[in-house]
């Protein structure tokens, strides 16, 4: 890796966690609360990859990815500096959409989402987690119900139909984080969207 002349070390080496065990523990706890309570918005901090990576997406990658997790980069996120940064900080192999455990990009760039793993009946956990970068993330818009939600919640989703279709696959289906700046929210396959 270090011998690769295209490797831009000045940008790739920066933006990792200063205190890995503590930063990743805080980040995971926030991400877990999001996945456990669909629609909840949390702030993430401690990491910043190169453009167009948001802080929240950077922190999720640092917290969850390593050489055991193939990552797919879609659209503008599939850029040299982003690839170098992910390789340096996580060691995650970069792959096509079908093999990805994590897929990162804007909602438009991630289309069509039926390329991503949805698990198998024996192993529904072997499904991709999408990290969807969005311009805005607010507790308004689509109405969410299901596990983790007492009555109902709301989240500014990029669309509704795809998540309705995904929920119908339960217990199969992908799961998604949405990131915007430092903000993160999640939508597991169990959530019913309208």
């Amino acid at each position: 890796m270090m011998g690769d002349l295209t490797f831009d070390s000045s940008r790739a080496l920066e933006g990792g966690f200063a205190d890995v065990p503590v930063h990743s523990a805080h980040a995971f706890r926030a991400a877990m609360e999001c996945m456990a309570r669909p629609g909840r918005i949390e702030d993430l901090a401690g990491g910043q990859g190169p453009e167009p990576l948001s802080v929240a997406a950077s922190v999720l990658l640092l917290t969850l990815c390593d050489p055991e997790t193939p990552v797919h980069l879609a659209g503008d996120h599939d850029a040299g500096p982003v690839r170098d940064w992910i390789t340096f900080h996580t060691g995650a192999p970069l792959v096509g959409p079908e093999e990805a455990m994590f897929a990162l990009g804007t909602w438009a760039a991630l289309q069509p989402v039926d390329r991503f793993a949805i698990g198998t009946p024996e192993y529904p956990d072997r499904a991709a987690t999408l990290i969807v970068e969005t311009d805005r993330l607010e507790a308004e818009g689509a109405v969410l119900t299901g596990p983790g939600i007492r009555d109902q919640a709301a989240l500014s989703l990029p669309e509704v139909a795809a998540f309705q279709a995904n929920a119908r696959l339960f217990p199969l289906g992908f799961d998604a984080f949405f990131t915007s700046g430092a903000r993160v929210a999640a939508l597991p396959r169990t959530t019913k969207v309208r």
Partner: peptide, 27 residues
Amino acid sequence: YNFAYLDEQTKRMIRRAILKGLAVPGY
């Protein structure tokens, strides 16, 4: 010891499993 005993890679592996567990309750 590392914070909370486990090394970071082990914790990431467990954390990923927790997230999928929350996404497929009871599985």
